[in-house]
Simulated scan of single mutants.
Amino acid sequence: MTPTTTPAPALERVRPRHDRDTTARRLLASAAKTSYDPQKDIDWSEPLEQGLFGMSAQWSTLYATPLWDELTPEQRIRLTELEFCSISGVGIWFEMILMQMILRDVYDQDPATPHVQFALTEIADECRHSVMFARTAEKFGARSYQPTGLDHQLGRLFKTLATGPSLYASILVAEEVLDIFQREVIDDEQVQPLTRAVSRIHVVEEARHMRFARDEIARRAETMGRAERGRQRLVLGIVANIIIHNLVQPEVYAEVGLDPDVAVRVARANEHHTAKLRGAAENLTSFLTDCGLVGGPSARLWRRARLV
């Protein structure tokens, strides 16, 4: 028997089953109206434009530091290209995790329901996104960076064992922070058209995924008892750290001629980049706090991830 507690005042009441499917129907209709095939909707034969950044320079982990000032214009451009490829590569890694989590979550549910059908639609989207990110790295002449060692193995463990609100909340940590980042990329005329096109597709389709995840989180958070809330907070705080700390892999810095150990220290101490992360996570952390998933001792983990 699952213990229950009184929900946080700001938390929405659990929606009945028919409302869950109503949301899914709306998302399915949106997907039918506006979805993309990156293989066809992006012109991969178009050459990269000279002198443009790989992503918004203000989002570089080294921007506004003395180390950034020491880089040549060519090094700055290459750094932003590789940082975008690293973020995308980590995105592929996490999308593989979330696809398996979602499949496991709906495994015992009725595929005739709109809820399961949208879950399958989301998985199809994520497959296309992963291929799109991989082709972007190929276009930039980079590899798709991914976490290694312990973090890679923890991802394997998490996709197998994650349950409850943290299953979908972990998806939001990755998607909502990157959503704000990519919206700025889309509007930045100093960024490669390829990056802007990739970001535009991702933002449009991830908006549906985030709505789906938020509804599931709010619904499941209602049933948490005190012990379960503490466990969910701890797991989610650890996941947030792994995601954020892995976005830009150290090899990126080495490939532009920097000492990776020095560059990682500078990046993590960069107040400008910390402010960008916190700003991007503001709506996310507010929502998760209302759901009871951020708070108590685990709040230290969110500060360590530089998201609060």
Rank of each mutant, 00 (worst) to 15 (best):
A57V: 14
F140M: 14
A32P: 00
T6C: 05
A221K: 05
Y253M: 08
Q117F: 00
R76A: 06
D215E: 15
T289D: 03
E255F: 04
A269Q: 11
D43A: 14
L234A: 14
V264A: 10
L284T: 06
Q182V: 07
L11R: 11
R208L: 05
S35I: 09
V198I: 14
R268S: 04
E83H: 12
M96F: 01
A197D: 08
R220Q: 04
D69K: 15
A64L: 07
F212N: 02
L167P: 05
A169Y: 06
N270F: 08
D215M: 13
D19R: 15
E12S: 12
S56P: 00
P7S: 03
W68Y: 06
L293E: 02
I201W: 04
E205H: 06
D105F: 11
T6M: 07
Q100W: 06
T163Q: 08
V203Y: 11
L236E: 01
S45H: 06
T274I: 14
K40I: 04
M55H: 07
F133E: 00
R78D: 02
A8L: 12
R214M: 07
E176Q: 15
R76I: 06
F158Y: 09
R13Y: 02
R220I: 00
I92H: 01
Q117D: 00
M132C: 13
R214Y: 02
E184R: 15
R200K: 14
L79F: 09
E255A: 10
T195Q: 02
F118H: 11
I201G: 06
V294P: 10
F84G: 01
R231I: 10
T160D: 08
R200L: 10
E216I: 14
E222P: 07
A137N: 13
A142I: 04
S45G: 08
R220F: 02
P260V: 11
D43F: 07
E216W: 13
T34K: 13
N283W: 09
Q182F: 13
L27I: 10
C127M: 08
E175H: 08
E222Y: 13
Q182A: 13
A32C: 01
T289S: 14
H272C: 10
G296E: 01
E271W: 13
